[in-house]
Design a binder for these strands. Structure first.
Lengths: 210, 210
DNA sequence: TGTACATCAGTGAACGCGCGTTCACTGATGTAC
DNA sequence: TGTACATCAGTGAACGCGCGTTCACTGATGTAC
């Protein structure tokens, strides 16, 4: 009945090592975090870590593997439906940002990986995510043209614009959160950015003509 | 006449230290780069570094200070002119991306700073750049309304959308450059992204009405 | 239920090594008379 | 032009320290008969 709690002592320790290591890596980076720090935070000696992991390297890669939300994202793109293009894109972006912020740790770990370990972990997943994006773009194009519909854009450009929006939002979010000197008004940022993505910042040149 | 080359031996060594340190920090990160590595690459002993800098810390902050292009960006926003809103925004973005890619090292150093040193160096400049952005937005709004003009957006939202576009473009550029498995078509990425920023990804809902 | 043995999950000390920084010293260059 | 001295730009050895990892050992727990 307690099911989930039926872990051996070893498994619980391994879990604890991963938890504290994640916290330390995120706050200090990979190189600056030592095995002794991890051991102390987990309440064991450094040598005990080597019972559960081959070394520091394996702790980090295990964390990266656990944190990656690629399956969820893939599933999101493949199954999402809506009544027209506009709402579909809007929904997709809102949910995508939701997923990514629910896995914010992954974003930061991946950034550490790229920065300190010359390894682009995202890159290994990218060939997998690519066809998903292209299929999604095709679905967008096949909508009835009575409602608002997609402009004739290169699918690659569309995908990159989408990725730029997401990563740009996340990056500016980091910056904004660390600024305490400037007081920003309360704005529905995501809604606003998605709106700009859909309709642009300009009004159409002339009214009633075009 | 040779003017620029009239440096003392000490000044030349200091310059050399900065050059090699920059290269090492960018490729390995801050913590993973040692003073011995810097000294060896500069052709001196570690102790000699302390003649020119107080320590490792000062080398890094000096590099950050030298690399920051904030004055150029400020100047860009304040002096740029064009015949209408659309062209002005387009020009601004193209030049902004140009400046930032000309100072790509700064972007990476700033990222290292945020990641490994818990210090947001951008943040110290932000209060300075803020009024510049607001003034720019006001200029955009004051254009004659005969041509294409700006939608009625919050200036803060507009600025963030602009920052998102820029940082998103740069981030996706990193990723794309490290992917060698997928062959991408040749596209005018910047032009395409700016176009989407201006007009959105959707066609207007109905033709001839609105 | 009791005993013998294997496995599990650790400890504590040590390995060799590289870290950032300091310090006493040194030869070359510049300056004053 | 020659000499005395100060400053510049380093060297080489050492400081104490923390790093990732290994190794011999140990007590607790699980299993077999």
């Amino acid at each position: 009945v307690e099911g989930k709690k039926r872990l051996t002592k070893g498994q619980r320790t391994k879990r604890e090592i991963l938890n504290v290591a994640k916290r330390l890596f995120l706050s200090q980076g990979y190189t600056a975090t030592s095995m002794r720090q991890i051991a102390q935070a987990a309440g064991i000696t450094p040598a005990a870590i080597y019972i559960h992991f081959q070394g520091k390297e394996e702790i980090f890669t295990t964390l990266l593997g656990e944190a990656a939300p690629f399956e969820i994202i893939k599933n999101l793109f493949e199954t999402i439906v809506a009544q027209n293009t506009e709402i579909l894109i809007e929904d997709t972006l809102l949910r995508l940002i939701d997923v990514l912020f629910g896995h914010e740790d992954y974003l930061r770990l991946a950034l550490i990986d790229v920065q300190e370990r010359n390894s682009a972990s995202i890159v290994t997943y990218l060939p997998e995510i690519f066809p998903v994006g292209l299929a999604y773009h095709q679905r967008l194009q096949s909508f009835e043209k009575g409602e608002s519909w997609l402009r004739d854009l290169s699918p690659f450009l569309f995908m990159r614009a989408l990725m730029s929006l997401i990563s740009g939002y996340i990056l500016t979010d980091y910056v904004i959160r660390s600024v305490t000197t400037v007081q920003l008004p309360e704005i529905d940022w995501i809604g606003g950015l998605v709106d700009i993505f859909l309709h642009g910042v300009l009004k159409p040149p002339e009214i009633g003509v075009r």
